[in-house]
């Protein structure tokens, strides 16, 4: 299990780095796909079967396909890539640096929690998850789903150009 975790963690970090390091956007997306695959592996290690399956379907099966779809349509490559001005580059460096600062600050305060072996490992199974979501957290769950519905309707509204 330990070796599996280190392998998956290594794969996730390596492919996440490759997402930003490779030049070709299609390759970036494929590396992102590898990242999601290893995260799905992590969920399976946690025995969170439902989360693994949903990550698989939603992120890898739908969202990444859409990303790939859009980038294939735009056919981005070295020649057509818009050249960014120096100002934009500076802004990028500064905001990225600020994010790094925040992350370093939060990691500096982090403490290692001793491993809690008393945790219920069956919580990630779909039956228990359903009980928790629909009994203990019914209202937040429903509110979140309404939020998604609103977002969906909004996307349709925006996509429909000749709206009367």
């Amino acid at each position: 299990m330990d070796k599996m975790f280190y392998f998956l963690a290594f794969l996730a970090i390596l492919s996440a780095l490759m997402v930003v390091l490779v030049k070709n956007p299609i390759h970036s997306i494929l590396y992102l796909l590898v990242t999601f695959t290893s995260i799905t592996g992590h969920y399976i290690l946690f025995n969170a079967q439902f989360l693994a399956a949903v990550n698989f379907i939603v992120y890898m099966g739908a969202i990444m396909v859409l990303f790939l779809f859009v980038i294939m349509f735009l056919n981005l490559n070295g020649e057509t890539e818009p050249q960014k001005s120096t100002l934009v580059k500076f802004a990028g460096v500064i905001s990225g640096g600020l994010l790094l600062l925040v992350m370093v600050a939060s990691f500096k305060k982090a403490v290692t929690i001793p491993l809690n072996t008393e945790v219920d490992t069956q919580i990630g199974l779909i039956k228990n998850l359903g009980m928790v979501l629909f009994k203990d957290y019914a209202l937040p769950f429903e509110l979140a789903s309404v939020l998604f519905l609103v977002a969906m309707i909004g996307a349709v509204m925006l996509a429909k150009k000749d709206w009367k």
Partner: peptide
């Protein structure tokens, strides 16, 4: 696995 259908779907 107890999420068999979801696996197929994925």
């Amino acid at each position: 696995i107890n999420v068999g259908i979801l696996f197929v779907f994925g």
